[in-house]
Simulated assay, not measured.
Amino acid sequence: MNKYILTWLLPLAMGLASCSQPGNSGNHQKKEVAATHADNKLEQVFADSTYQLTGVAVSADGRMFVNYPYWLDKHTYSVVEVGKDGKAKPYPDEAWNRFKKGENGLNKFVCVQAVFADEEGYLWIVDPAGIGLSDVYQKSNKLIQIDLKTNQIKQIYRFPENVAGIKSYINEIRIDNKNGFAYMTSSANGGIVIVNIKTGASRLVLHNHYSTLSDPTYHFKMNGREMMNAKGVAKINSDGIALTPDKAWLYYKSLTDNKLYRINTAILRDFKSSEKAIEGAIEDLGKFVATDGMEFDQNGNLYMGDLEHSSIVKISPDKKMTTLVQDTAKLSWPDSYSITRDGYLYITCSQIHQMPFFNNNKNLTQLPYKVFRLKIK
């Protein structure tokens, strides 16, 4: 088993994010409201009985996209569009989804980790190209922008070695079209990748910084025990990120602990900002839950999945946390999120903790993999 598999998988808006809760101190603690709402129902919208999925994106006009990382030996398509009939077809076409080991992966999907639909009609696809969460395959990691009107590739962004090199694993993404920037987490070794989507220039910041590394004192438990792999306790670094509605703040956190951080995007957009200045601008928001992905709605509420308790939680701008729904059967590792204009939170359940990596090479997955949606307004 490659060591990068073992160390990665082996790795509120305007009110919360502006002046109402400014604190830099890690002493800020949440006010948790233990209130599960009986009327909140998880509605299944897609299922796959064969391949493991991670990301979901729903466009402004209701088109749904799902991605499949190339983690296990069994793999076919990387990105699909799910039709109204529930059937999936490769997106944007067969050619991009036809990669095989040994081939050139520069202009094909190799190992897609995330998809994101922005408000301007583009689908963004993150391809860390880390087959089995191993080294980047033949320098083919990339960020792809697709025009949903034409279903054609608009731009492919590639990265220099000092931004996303052979040992990197780029992960979640959020887009700021207002200022022209993309933000991605780098999970293999902790960090934030910033891309100027107008010029293509990119930068890695907070590499190996404590805020992008999983807290070594936190004991992340799944299946009734601390999650382990062949090398010991599993620690997954910077993973989930979210942008406030005004794009002024980037929220981010490691996966296997409950700490949450934010930073003003103005300092990130200025590529002349020193690493020291960026580190000094970090705000510690306190402790909440161990989540994979997270997302803001337009009212500044932040949604997360509480992995350890199979729950979806909402953190309001005044930092009160409410449990919206808990379901140990359905919410098996809630992974990624997409919020639609009609008030639904879409949720993928990837069952990562059931993979052989964490269970002495036994696959405990309970098929199918599923996507749900939850009415939030």
Rank of each mutant, 00 (worst) to 15 (best):
D292L: 02
K319N: 06
H209V: 05
P128V: 05
T348D: 04
S336E: 10
L268M: 08
F159L: 00
M64P: 01
I347H: 11
N189F: 11
G293Q: 00
A277E: 10
I146H: 02
N299M: 01
D239C: 06
N2P: 02
Y51C: 09
Y91P: 13
D292H: 04
Q326L: 06
N264I: 05
P317W: 06
G105Y: 14
D297W: 04
P92I: 06
L285E: 06
H37R: 13
S254Q: 10
P22H: 05
T256W: 01
G293E: 00
I312E: 10
T185Y: 05
Y303I: 00
R373Q: 09
N208R: 14
P334L: 01
N179P: 03
H28M: 09
M228C: 08
I376W: 15
L285H: 07
E81W: 03
Q155A: 04
S186G: 13
Q155D: 01
I312M: 15
D292C: 07
K259G: 04
I125A: 05
K84R: 11
K31L: 03
G23C: 07
V126E: 15
R225K: 15
G86V: 09
R174Q: 12
N223Y: 11
L250R: 08
F288C: 03
L213G: 06
D257S: 04
F109Y: 15
T291L: 03
F181N: 12
D327P: 11
K41F: 00
A88R: 13
A34Y: 02
H28L: 08
G280P: 01
N40C: 07
N359W: 03
D127V: 03
V136D: 04
S274Y: 02
A230I: 08
S140C: 10
N361M: 13
G190D: 09
D246F: 12
L324Y: 14
V163S: 03
K253L: 07
D135H: 12
D306A: 09
F357R: 07
N97F: 14
